[in-house]
Design a protein around this nucleic acid. Structure first.
Length: 593
RNA sequence: GGGGCCGUAGUUAAGUCGGUUAUAACGCUGGCCUGUCAAGCCAGAGGGCGCGGGUUCGAGUCCCGUCGGCCCCGCCA
């Protein structure tokens, strides 16, 4: 290995252009590929800006040529040489620098390299476990470099936009207080307070509200959040939010800022102009028509309620469900009457995953219904159903009958599946939709109490506030989610700024006065000292980037993600710690047995 | 906590009904080669099938357990 000495890079490999022809350059980078012809040796040299071909010609220096013979993939080298137009017929149009090459005059091997466990190229087919173990090699791949540099630009755009709109970037604690509600906390033991723990923030929620109390008026943060829950392709234990909060505003103000912010981020990232304002659906509409509170509105295929049509029918399954307060809904899979038994079974299996006990189907033909349930329904009922779902010969109607929540979940997911399978989703479409008017509370059957649908600090709608005690489940909230292509990419709300209302909500959530004081006393205190009406939103940066980059998983837009077991194969975190460390923290590990 | 798919050279994969010495491609090593860029040609090395049991004359193939990866349900205000 050689030292850099007084050599300094004069250009990036990917930046060697025709303009430099005739000049000398000093390049530094990684050996992508060596093609040794015995005489001529070609080396593709790579840095973050791209590749350039370096030519080692024995006639230009026998010793340098000999040295180049020993180069291997991923060696880090520096070369000095002349930029030259490539000889006629040897240009490589698939390379940005394919019209030129660098004739090496001097070579330094700055670092040699082991044979990498997988090849550093975009079409890398190595498994994700190997790639995560050697993440530094994986990150050398142009695809990941591109994703992470996009991440930088998007963040930069967000900072610019928000700073320009009067938002102040602040900092909130990472060592904070564990609070009930919400996700499981990551805990950090306190050495100076034996037996006491900090929690890593699930979001800066309370602190940003308190900054509003403190009069900062507009705050933002691009901030890491932590939730100790099971992972998914769109969920990591630590993830990044673009978090903002504003004072003296109502829902429409926050939504307008979020739209402007997203428009700026997409302009920055993809060069596309988003049309604002975005479409809006109430929670009721979203769930009713699409089955989910994160509707993919890129295609229709909407759910239709046929409960009224079948409630008095001879089909016992439907009639029973209807009489017990359940619903029967239908989905018209246009032109899918040719579905095989196997395909129908797959749909039923999918329904089962989401709690559906079955899935009735009807193939609509010129002669009428072909279906196991046809004989249970009258001609009139069948006609009314046909009309309800706009059925035409060749269509396939799928039914789910159950409790409302189950029917919506089942048909909502089947709708998405069908949308993909039938190619109903327009490529390159970015369909944003706001979902508003969420219920303030849900009833949790296992805990036997109300739980906040968004979070406990969400303000009820002014016109519903009177129903807080009389009919909590009918109270709608000032919460809003932003959904992109069927994925939730953000959510927020106008907060409660009245201490009395906040106390009342805590009470409805089953928290006694004392408990509320113990858990959220600081918030209640703060609210009592003059609080502006305020609200905000948090955008899921990783998810947005995954959509922008068409990544299957947010792991592809995070430099150092974790596996599904929340393990980092590179650093091997989490790990056991020394007994001494545990002693200092007054901790003892209890093996589960 | 649960369901599904998957663990075979460095990597990606094949391996039939259980049957000689476990295949291939890429990569790697050596040699030849002055216009390649998926370089080419020749030669070669490299694994005992995630791990532990079991069944069997015989297990990469079957069974049980376990570990790990991915997808999903629950969970994620």
């Amino acid at each position: 290995m050689e030292s850099l000495g007084n050599w300094r890079r004069s250009a990036y490999c990917g930046g060697v252009s025709k303009d430099l022809i005739g000049g000398e350059v000093t390049l530094m980078g990684w050996v992508q590929k060596r093609r040794d012809h015995g005489g001529l040796i070609f080396v593709d040299l790579r840095d973050r800006e791209g590749l350039v071909q370096v030519v080692f010609n024995p006639s230009a220096g026998a010793d340098v040529h000999l040295k180049a013979h020993g180069l291997r993939s991923e060696y880090v080298i520096a070369i000095k040489g002349a930029v030259s137009k490539r000889p006629e017929g040897t240009e490589n149009p698939s390379l940005k620098t394919g019209g030129v090459e660098v004739l090496a005059g001097e070579l330094k091997v700055l670092s040699d390299a082991e044979v990498p466990p997988f090849m550093i190229e975009d079409e890398c087919d190595a498994g994700e476990d190997v790639r995560l173990k050697y993440r530094y090699l994986d990150l050398r791949r142009p695809a990941l470099q591109k994703n992470l540099r996009l991440r930088h630009r998007v963040c930069q755009g967000a900072r610019d936009y928000l700073s320009g709109d009067g938002f102040i970037e602040m900092e909130t604690p990472m060592l904070t207080k564990s609070t009930p509600e919400g996700a499981r906390d990551f805990l950090v033991p306190s050495r100076l307070n034996a037996g006491h723990f900090y929690a890593l923030p699930q979001s800066p929620q309370l602190f940003k509200q308190i900054l509003m109390v403190a009069g900062f008026d507009r705050y933002f943060l691009i901030v890491r959040c932590f939730r100790d829950e099971d992972l998914r392709s769109d969920r990591q234990p630590e993830f990044t939010q673009i978090d903002l909060e504003m004072s003296f505003v109502d829902t429409s103000d926050v939504m307008a800022v979020a739209e402007g912010l997203l428009a700026r981020m997409f302009k920055e990232a993809l060069g596309v102009e988003l049309k604002t304002p975005f479409a809006r659906l109430t929670h009721d509409e979203a769930v009713g028509r699409y089955g989910l509170d994160k509707p993919d509105v890129r295609f229709a295929l909407e759910l239709r309620d046929v409960t009224d049509i079948v409630k008095g029918s001879g089909f016992k399954v439907f009639a029973d469900v209807a009489s017990k307060g359940g619903v029967v809904k239908a989905l018209n899979a246009k032109e899918c009457a040719a579905f095989t038994r196997k395909e129908l079974d797959e749909m039923t299996e999918l329904a089962a995953i989401f709690g559906g006990k079955g899935l009735a189907w009807v193939k609509v033909t010129e002669e009428g219904w072909q279906s196991p349930i046809a004989k249970f329904l009258t001609d009139g009922e069948r006609k009314r159903i046909d009309a309800a779902v706009d059925a035409a010969p060749g269509d396939l109607i799928l039914f789910s009958a159950d409790k409302k929540e189950v029917v919506n979940a089942v048909l909502g997911r089947i709708r998405v599946k069908l949308g993909k399978r039938l190619g109903l989703i327009p490529k390159d479409s970015m369909s944003f939709v706001w979902v508003t008017d969420f219920p303030l509370f849900e009833y949790d059957e296992t805990e036997k109490r109300y739980v906040a649908m968004h979070h406990p600090f969400t303000s009820p709608m002014d016109e519903d506030a009177g129903k807080l005690e009389s009919a909590p489940l009918e109270v709608r909230s000032k919460a809003y989610d932003i959904v992109l292509n069927g994925e939730e990419i953000g959510g927020g709300s106008i907060r409660i700024h009245d201490q009395k209302v906040q106390s009342k909500v805590f009470g409805l959530l089953g928290m006694g006065t004392e408990e509320a004081r113990a858990k959220f006393g600081f918030l209640l205190d703060a609210l009592s000292f003059g609080t502006p009406p305020h609200g905000g939103i948090a955008l899921g940066l990783d998810r947005i980037l995954a959509i922008m980059t068409r990544s299957e998983s947010i792991r592809d837009v995070i430099a150092f993600p974790k596996t599904q077991k929340a393990f980092c194969p590179m650093s091997e975190a989490p790990s056991e710690v020394d007994k001494k460390q545990l002693d200092e923290l007054s901790l003892r590990v209890v093996k589960k047995g």
